[in-house]
Amino acid sequence: MLELLQGLGHWTLSGLRRLGRANIFMLYVLGGIPLCVRRFRLVITQLFAVGVLSILIIFVSGLFVGMVLGLQGYNTLVDFGAEESLGVLVALSLVRELGPVVSALLFAGRAGSALTAEIGLMKATEQLSAMEMMAVDPLHRVIAPRLLAGIIAMPLLAAIFSAVGVFGGYLVGVGMLGVDDGAFWSQMQSSVEFREDILNGVIKSLVFGVTVTWIAVFEGYDTLPTSEGIGRATTRTVVNSSLAVLAFDFILTALMFNK
């Protein structure tokens, strides 16, 4: 019984300690933002790694999710004779929820894990240490550009996901199932609010971008410098950032769409 309590206590304390380390880490990293602005090349190189290389998976997933939404939505709506509202259903689900959330989950798996592994490996091979000895702060030179690139890339990827998804829903709904073309778009346009839906979706994806990238770079930097440690850190990145995204999604949805 006491051991159980001790275990719980140990778990809580080490969790809090990690959280504290992550916050201090973030504070130092933010000190590197001026450097990134001055030498934007560093960020561009990272944008390539986290953004451009994630496009394919985001594009394909968005298309399929949109197509599935089109099929499922049609089958449900047709029972109420409301298949004209398919556009609304597809667009709202994507813009409000699936776009930001699914692309953040994919981003965590694709770019987040790669970031963790890369930084962990740089630590294990003493590259970060060597930078420090060359009087270069790795938090500013290595971590900050990656964080910034992640934050910039995430909303763009989510927007691509949603746009492609709407197109996928259109392909299935209008192309395959014969929903009226005009009704699809006009109903969508009359129901989707720019500020309420699209802007909130963008804000969501920004928050997710910060969350996922922060977790990824912190796990990489905080890893044990061994191959096993890196493996564990990579897994932790994907698991923790996915959970964080879903939790934040609930909180944000409650705040944003609570009328």
Binding site: A91, V95, P155, L156, A159, I160, S162, A163, V164, V166, W185, M188, Q189, S190, S191, V192, E193, F194, D197, I198, V202
Partner: peptide, 11 residues
């Protein structure tokens, strides 16, 4: 994509 969402999808 953002522009499309703003112009084509929303009002």
């Amino acid at each position: 994509a953002l522009t499309i969402l703003a112009m084509k999808v929303s009002n």
